[in-house]
Amino acid sequence: MSGQGTEATSHPNYVKVYLALLVLFAISVVGPLFGHPWLTLVTAFGVAAVKATMVAAYFMHLNIERRYIWYLLFTMVAFMGLLFAGVAPDVLAQGGQNWRHVRPAQPAVGHH
């Protein structure tokens, strides 16, 4: 009802945050178009992390929430890193496990 310009002073200017997010979004789309793997990694995923952090900090107000909520959410992300670290050696790298079927030189005896 009241005028559009009344911003609460304790809050960030949401429209500015939004515009910053749009700029980052543009970077994340344009960056990978060059086809350089490292540039893709940084622009697509690095920028995504920055964007998500900005959304969490300014839109979800985590920057003015109790500090331990950050820690809580970050711990959950860290557990996912742990899951990845524990599982990746099996799902990702199968080197040295000799899973290819190699015929034995002689047939095994005594199994019938």
Partner: peptide
């Protein structure tokens, strides 16, 4: 927090397969 680990589990699996 509990949603993060649900999506996290799915996406971690995806990233592994993707690589």
């Amino acid at each position: 927090a509990s949603e993060i680990v649900i999506f996290g589990g799915l996406l971690a699996s995806y990233i592994m397969f993707r690589l």
